[in-house]
Design a protein around this nucleic acid. Structure first.
Lengths: 237, 237
DNA sequence: GTCTATAGTATGATAGAC
DNA sequence: GTCTATCATACTATAGAC
């Protein structure tokens, strides 16, 4: 190996490390903005101001706003997963499910901005794009854009599926575990959304709600197995 | 009653009717835009262009973009309620619940833009507001803003609560019907959201999912009442 | 009652100087 | 590698002419 090659590699390494550090600084600033003002308020200018850069410089490290948001989304997903991971080791299946469900919802409610980031990194904004961006989009972005961002949330379903399948097999497969897993995930997602939006979830805390849901499914089966047929109490009138 | 008063009233009526018509035209255009491009893309300019007005004229009929979005949201809620109303009259409680749940989700999935409108008419956008608007906001809007828009979705919970309470009383009140109602609502909301976002709900149609959920709660109780304690299958590794 | 014109404020993105 | 300057675009909202 000649001196030239060696020097070249050192340089590359240094360059890479430096670039990595700058990306981190940018992401840190972006994260702070999203936490304080929401994803919709994230803009290149605000990030640049926050770290004392000019907006133009950001484009040396990221292709644009969307790439930054995507990166934050991946981060957020990793954080959520890290929070759930130890709970997946709980021995008792039912206890485990409870723990996971509560942790999931707690995370979503405690970090609504991050949760938003995880699920909405795409689709979230009006366009505001220059003519050059539009030119590019025609060729590339529509095909490549969403696939990676969509991959992360899917893991949510898989996580619950694994736990749920442990709960159902003994019964002779009357219930599709995967369906239940998706149902549970939808429920938790819905609880997070509605709790954050305060949209008519008047005064019920998410915790008891989750307990009630899981109990209805698997718990305390004191509910009458035969259902009474009653008249509708005339809700919509 | 003098002639003057009479004439005055006629004039008022005509004026009111005309104003009403114009509001309708504006709302029609706004609705079309939201259906095609989503709530985030709704703007005064686009509405004005669509009906051949100048942006300034819209302010004669609406206080601003938010008021228009709110009006569309109320419309949408009324439409959803109208769709559910006849189903609330089904005699058999369980059949009724199934019908309501399916109809609710079907509406949300078939009209995602309207659904978005119903739930997100507030909070949806970056600010883009002039200095005058900001001045006003400080005093008034923060207090008065959300109360009316939030009132509508709350009815969702009440609707399901009434039906669910009809399903549970015979069992000696082991389950809080109101909690279950909220859980169901959250589930349905979650199914709509996740289905629309295609976020990992890979290939499952919403229909079977809802059936499975309701069955797990009330239906075919062939699931073993005693739960096996199994080891976690190591999901998060 | 409607429009033109405009103020004021954002945005993403890029070319080219240093 | 960073910045200045700028393009092109979008938005809400208002004043004042007609």
């Amino acid at each position: 190996m000649g001196i030239v090659e060696r020097k070249d590699r050192e340089l590359h390494t240094k360059h890479a490390a430096r670039a990595h550090g700058q990306r981190e600084r940018i992401l840190d600033a972006a994260r702070r903005i999203v936490m304080r003002e929401g994803l919709a308020a994230l803009s290149m200018r605000k990030i640049a101001d926050a770290i004392g850069y000019s907006p133009a410089s950001l484009y040396l490290y990221f292709a644009g706003r969307d790439e930054i948001a995507e990166a934050l989304g991946r981060e957020g997903y990793a954080q959520l997963a890290a929070q759930l991971e130890p709970l997946a080791l709980i021995d008792d299946a039912r206890e485990r499910l409870h723990a996971l469900a509560h942790a999931y919802v707690a995370y979503g409610c405690d970090h609504p901005q991050t949760y938003e980031l995880i699920f909405m990194a795409h689709k979230a904004r009006p366009e505001h794009e220059g003519p050059a961006a539009r030119r590019r989009r025609g060729a590339l972005a529509d095909v490549a854009g969403a696939s990676e961002a969509d991959a992360a949330p899917a893991c949510g379903a898989r996580l619950f599926a694994a736990t749920l399948s442990a709960l159902t097999p003994a019964s002779g497969a009357p219930v599709d575990g995967s369906l239940l897993a998706q149902s549970l995930w939808a429920t938790l997602h819905g609880v997070v959304m509605l709790t954050c939006a305060r949209a008519g979830f008047q005064h019920t805390a998410p915790g008891p709600l989750i307990d009630a849901t899981l109990d209805a499914w698997f718990g305390a089966r004191r509910v009458a197995a035969t259902l009474p047929t009653v008249r509708a109490p005339g809700v919509a009138s």
